[in-house]
Simulated scan of single mutants.
Amino acid sequence: MDPFSITAGVVGIVGPTLHCVRLLIKDLQNIADAPDAVKALTTDLQSVGLALASVQAVTDPQWKSLGDAVTTQSKAATTSCKTSCERFRTSLDRWTRHSTDGTLSWRDRVTLGVFRQGHIKSLSEQLQNCNITLTSVASIATLHSSLQQAQAAEVIKTMISTKEAAVNDAIAAANDQSAEIGAKLEALTLAEPDEGETDADQTGATRQVAMEKKALGESRKVFEGLLSAIQTAAANAQATQGPTVTFGSHNQGQQVGVNSGTISATFSGRG
């Protein structure tokens, strides 16, 4: 598949997703006396909006440097975010059907404040994960450009090390979250509806957690692709800097390689 057609696919979904996010923010802000959980969701959405805007700024050559896997999974992760926001807007309209002029009726306040907490929390966690994923994509997409501008080997080494550590942490966090979401989805599937909760509400909540799990899997694949892109950037940086011998994360030992030029070696003990 043409990598630039993949890039067009990513860019094509970012705009509609950003529009959907902004519509949901407006809907939530129109609820004047919204519960704290709903207000917090607004903050999550605003962060995702900024992440989407940063992804829009990624250039075609930068997408190409990330590779097909990252661009494909970035599109999937963005699409999942859009789907969840659209579904939540539909649910929100149903949950506030007894309210007028932005003021919640007592019945709708109870609905949002008690019965829908799980649904809102699941969407919040998905949005936070989406924010981390898209921000990482935009940040690492510019890594190659930054490396071209960096002159000192230590600057390059620090940049790559920092990005690699951040992505590894994100993968570890995704693994932990996956187990938690699996247990939550199983509990929702077996649970009886709460008093005042309709079958549609329970179905919506279950569907949202399932979407959160799906989106988390997509994000993990993005991070794995980004890790590969970072390793490629590291190899390119080493080639650009010339035959410099460096040491791994343990900062000890000796490395020997075949080299036809002058070798610059740095030795140090444990930090």
Rank of each mutant, 00 (worst) to 15 (best):
E164K: 12
V209D: 09
A191C: 08
A187Y: 00
R107T: 12
E218K: 08
A235Q: 15
S178H: 13
E224A: 05
T206W: 15
Q202V: 04
T7Y: 11
F4R: 13
T262C: 07
A166L: 04
V38A: 06
L50Q: 15
N236S: 00
G102A: 02
G269E: 12
T240A: 12
T96F: 12
F267Y: 08
A174L: 11
E218C: 05
C85D: 00
T244Q: 15
A51G: 06
Q117L: 09
Q238E: 05
R89F: 03
K82W: 04
G269L: 02
V245R: 15
N251F: 07
K163A: 13
E218A: 07
A32S: 02
Q149Y: 02
A76F: 03
N131W: 14
G118C: 11
N175V: 15
E195N: 09
G49A: 10
Q117Y: 02
D169V: 13
N251T: 07
T135M: 14
R109H: 10
A187R: 06
H19I: 05
V167D: 11
V110F: 11
G113H: 04
S139E: 12
G225Y: 02
E212Q: 10
I13G: 07
K39W: 11
I171D: 07
A57I: 07
L18D: 09
S122D: 13
V55Y: 04
G269R: 15
Q151Y: 13
A183T: 09
K64Q: 11
T244C: 14
R87I: 08
G15H: 14
Q254N: 12
L185D: 15
I13C: 02
T262A: 01
I140C: 00
A265T: 06
Q254P: 02
A210G: 01
R109Y: 02
A200S: 05
W63G: 03
V258M: 10
G196E: 03
E197N: 10
G67S: 11
Q149K: 14
S139K: 06
A40D: 11
Q29V: 02
T79M: 03
D27W: 03
K64Y: 13
R107S: 10
C20R: 04
Q151R: 08
Q177N: 13
T206H: 12
T111L: 08
V167N: 10
N168V: 13
R270V: 15
L28W: 01
D68Q: 10
M159P: 05
S249T: 14
A76G: 08
E154G: 03
V155G: 00
L28G: 05
R22G: 03
G204T: 04
A165R: 07
S105A: 07
L104M: 08
V48P: 08
V137T: 02
S178C: 10
M211P: 10
C81G: 07
K214Q: 13
L190H: 09
V155H: 00
T203I: 09
Q177D: 13
C20G: 07
S260K: 07
D60R: 03
Q177L: 12
A51M: 05
N131E: 15
V48Q: 03
G9H: 04
F223L: 08
I171W: 12
T142F: 12
P61C: 12
L188Y: 13
H98T: 08
T198A: 08
P3R: 09
L52G: 14
A200K: 11
T246Q: 09
T17L: 00
D101I: 00
S65R: 05
P16T: 04
D36P: 08
T96P: 00
S74Q: 02
T135K: 13
T90P: 01
V222I: 10
N251G: 11
I140P: 01
E164P: 09
S178P: 00
